[in-house]
Amino acid sequence: MSLTDETVPGPDGPGMLRKVSRWWGDWPLTQIAVIAAVIALFWLLGHNTAATMARIGITPGFDFLGRPANFEIGEAPIAFRAGDPYARAILAGLLNTLTVAALGCLLATILGVALGVAGLSGNLLLAALVRWYVEIVRNTPLLLQLFFWISLAKSFPSPRQALSVFGSFFLTNRGVFVPGLAFHGVSAPTLWLLVGLALAYMAFLWRARREGSLPARRLGIATAGLLAGVVLTFPLTGAGASWEIPALAGFNIRGGYNLTPEFTALLTGLVVKFSAAIAEIVRAGIQSVDRGQWEASRALGLHSGQIMRLVVLPQALRVITPLTTSSYLDLTKDSSLAVAIGYPDLVSIINTTANTTGQSLEALTLLIGIYLAINLSVSAAMNHYNRRVALRGIART
């Protein structure tokens, strides 16, 4: 460019001040009036709410979280009994919700991917069965399905006449009994060592990702070291673990894990419902891959399983991942229907808290904030994974 050329300034860069200046436009008084009206509306609602709470003797605030709760919780991953603070009760409900949501997303993904692939198989009978499964499940309300599953769970025989599968799994009207690990003597040093091992393993993976390569040999050595560290942690800290298989003892079944009828019905309903949605997403993602990819893979001598695993599914993930994120968010939110079948999830506990304390506004605020935090966290994690999938796809092309 010569010295005599005229330079023209470019457009204003993006920024909050620039956006605000554009929003004001040529009618600043109108915007000021709108903002003032919104502020006045919220102030009026807050003033009326505070006056109503004061009239009926309720002090606004979250001090009730430290007061003792006068109710029991049927099942919780942490110890809870009547008289513990409301905050601990809400924590128990939150852990119940996170447990069923995490397991539901995992199992629904496994079943949905299997159904999506099976629906595209050359077996006409299998494809027809998958089609019927998807259509029936997707076109019936989730609440109706939960009622069906809880009724089925309650119709199982008593423990003495339990239905046994392989002599290790028992279906009873008191829940499903499955084998599991029983831990004893676990102390704070045990937990700290396990957390340290997990952090070290994650740091290793993060460093390998930064370097851009992770040979299978190094990954195998690191994984073996992690498992060896976990195994050695228990005897070093005086803790232990044993594998327990359920067995009939008297009028009940002892040993292993007991999945209550409510938890089993809720988890089954969520997995069945959203596996059908994920199956359709997987089917659409696979069909979005050009047929030429199949033909080129066959020309290289790959069989159908290798083509699906190594060629088609990695490309289909760019279509599958964003839609699966929506299914995960819907599954997490729909777990709140647990209140209809008696499972003590977050909604159930906060509803009981609001009824017993009268702090309905604060309880609902907590509920909204917690669900918002959960869903935003899931969305952020899936968006990060989606960006990595998209970048890999761009790198290939």
Score class of each variant (00 low, 15 high):
Trp23Gln: 07
Glu211Met: 00
Trp294Phe: 09
Gly255Arg: 06
Pro235Cys: 05
Leu45Glu: 07
Val389Met: 04
Thr237His: 03
Leu266Lys: 01
Leu226Asn: 02
Thr172His: 02
Ala54His: 15
Gln31Leu: 12
Ile253Asp: 00
Ser377Ile: 07
Phe170Glu: 02
Tyr257Ala: 10
Gly250His: 07
Phe170Tyr: 13
Ile58Cys: 02
Ser360Thr: 08
Ala50Cys: 01
Phe183Gly: 04
Thr97Pro: 07
Ile136Asn: 11
Phe71Met: 07
Leu126Thr: 08
Leu115Phe: 11
Pro215Leu: 00
Gly269Asp: 00
Pro189Glu: 02
Thr99Phe: 11
Ser155Gly: 15
Leu391Gln: 14
Lys333Leu: 12
Ala188Thr: 12
Val20Gly: 08
Ala182Ile: 09
Ile58Val: 09
Trp294Asp: 12
Glu262Ser: 08
Val312His: 00
His47Gln: 13
Thr59Phe: 03
Thr4Asn: 14
Met308Gln: 06
Ala200Asp: 10
Val20Ala: 07
Ser2Thr: 14
Gly83Cys: 05
Pro215Thr: 01
Arg309Phe: 04
Pro157Phe: 07
Leu313Arg: 10
Ala241Ile: 00
Arg298Ser: 10
Arg318Lys: 08
Ala102Cys: 11
Asn123Asp: 11
Pro344Gly: 01
Leu115Ala: 05
Phe177Ala: 03
Asp5Asn: 09
Leu300Lys: 15
Thr140Gln: 09
Asp12Met: 14
Ala203Leu: 10
Leu29Thr: 09
Gly240Val: 02
Ala153Val: 02
Leu205Ala: 11
Leu337Met: 08
Leu317Glu: 01
Trp132Val: 14
Ser242Arg: 14
Arg309His: 10
Ser275Pro: 06
Thr109Val: 04
Pro314Gly: 06
Ala390Thr: 14
Gly240Ala: 06
Ile78Met: 03
Phe156Asn: 00
Ala390Gln: 15
